Amino acid sequence: MQSVRVLARRLVPRTSNASTSTARLSTKSGAREEELLARDPALSKYQSTKTTVQRIQLFGDFLVILVAAGAVYEIAYKVQQRNAAEAQDAKKNMESQITVEQR
Rank of each mutant, 00 (worst) to 15 (best):
residue 1 M to G: 05
residue 2 Q to D: 12
residue 4 V to P: 01
residue 4 V to Y: 07
residue 4 V to M: 12
residue 5 R to A: 06
residue 5 R to L: 06
residue 7 L to D: 11
residue 7 L to Y: 07
residue 8 A to W: 03
residue 9 R to M: 03
residue 10 R to C: 06
residue 10 R to W: 03
residue 12 V to G: 00
residue 13 P to A: 14
residue 14 R to E: 07
residue 18 A to S: 13
residue 18 A to V: 11
residue 18 A to E: 09
residue 21 S to W: 12
residue 21 S to Y: 14
residue 22 T to C: 06
residue 22 T to W: 06
residue 22 T to H: 10
residue 24 R to G: 02
residue 27 T to K: 14
residue 27 T to E: 07
residue 28 K to I: 04
residue 30 G to Y: 00
residue 30 G to F: 01
residue 30 G to T: 02
residue 31 A to R: 02
residue 31 A to N: 02
residue 31 A to I: 01
residue 32 R to K: 13
residue 33 E to R: 00
residue 33 E to I: 02
residue 35 E to G: 02
residue 38 A to I: 02
residue 38 A to R: 07
residue 39 R to Q: 05
residue 40 D to Y: 02
residue 41 P to Q: 01
residue 43 L to S: 06
residue 43 L to D: 04
residue 43 L to V: 02
residue 44 S to P: 01
residue 45 K to H: 14
residue 46 Y to M: 09
residue 50 K to L: 08
residue 51 T to P: 01
residue 52 T to E: 10
residue 52 T to L: 08
residue 54 Q to S: 11
residue 55 R to G: 11
residue 56 I to P: 01
residue 57 Q to N: 15
residue 57 Q to E: 13
residue 59 F to R: 11
residue 60 G to W: 02
residue 63 L to R: 09
residue 64 V to F: 12
residue 65 I to M: 11
residue 66 L to Q: 08
residue 66 L to A: 14
residue 67 V to S: 09
residue 67 V to M: 10
residue 68 A to F: 12
residue 69 A to L: 11
residue 70 G to A: 04
residue 70 G to Y: 05
residue 70 G to E: 04
residue 72 V to L: 12
residue 73 Y to E: 00
residue 73 Y to K: 03
residue 74 E to Y: 12
residue 75 I to C: 07
residue 75 I to D: 04
residue 77 Y to H: 10
residue 79 V to I: 06
residue 79 V to R: 08
residue 79 V to M: 05
residue 80 Q to I: 01
residue 81 Q to Y: 02
residue 87 A to Q: 05
residue 89 D to A: 15
residue 90 A to N: 13
residue 91 K to T: 07
residue 92 K to G: 00
residue 93 N to A: 15
residue 93 N to D: 09
residue 94 M to D: 12
residue 94 M to N: 09
residue 94 M to Y: 07
residue 95 E to C: 00
residue 95 E to S: 05
residue 95 E to K: 08
residue 96 S to W: 10
residue 96 S to A: 15
residue 96 S to G: 01
residue 97 Q to R: 12
residue 97 Q to A: 14
residue 98 I to C: 00
residue 99 T to M: 11
residue 100 V to K: 15
residue 100 V to W: 09
residue 100 V to F: 09
residue 101 E to W: 12
residue 102 Q to R: 15
residue 103 R to L: 07
residue 103 R to D: 01
